[in-house]
Amino acid sequence: MSLVIYIAVMAGVTYLIRMIPFAAFRRQIKSRFFRSFLYYVPYAVLTAMTIPAIFYSTGSMATAAFGTAVAVVLAYFDMPLIAVALAASAAAFAAGLAIPFFS
């Protein structure tokens, strides 16, 4: 498996998805099922990517779980994306510092 081909496939597919409709499309999709499907795809993809991978993202399940909990609470209160992202990371970091004192 070649790194160059991986990157070319990745970038090529991503570009074509953006480009083909942008260059060609003039009308709206009519099918209600297809529009609903497309509406839900981002949420389905992001959730499938996040769970359970988030619990393995910091090298420690405990710090990751703490960071995840902070992210969920802040997201629930509609905090901006960037605030949620940085606070979760700060929480995971703080948990990593605190855990040795309890174990």
């Binding site: 949420y43 990371s89 995971a92």
Partner: peptide, 28 residues
């Protein structure tokens, strides 16, 4: 310890994208 904690940033952002609409829409 710091770079480990940064590993969660992207996933936390995904959570922040999904949860607000999930509160409002049963479908989401």
């Amino acid at each position: 310890s710091l770079t480990d904690a940064m590993g969660i940033v992207l996933y936390a952002m995904f959570i922040a994208i999904v949860i607000p609409p999930a509160k409002k829409s049963r479908g989401v």
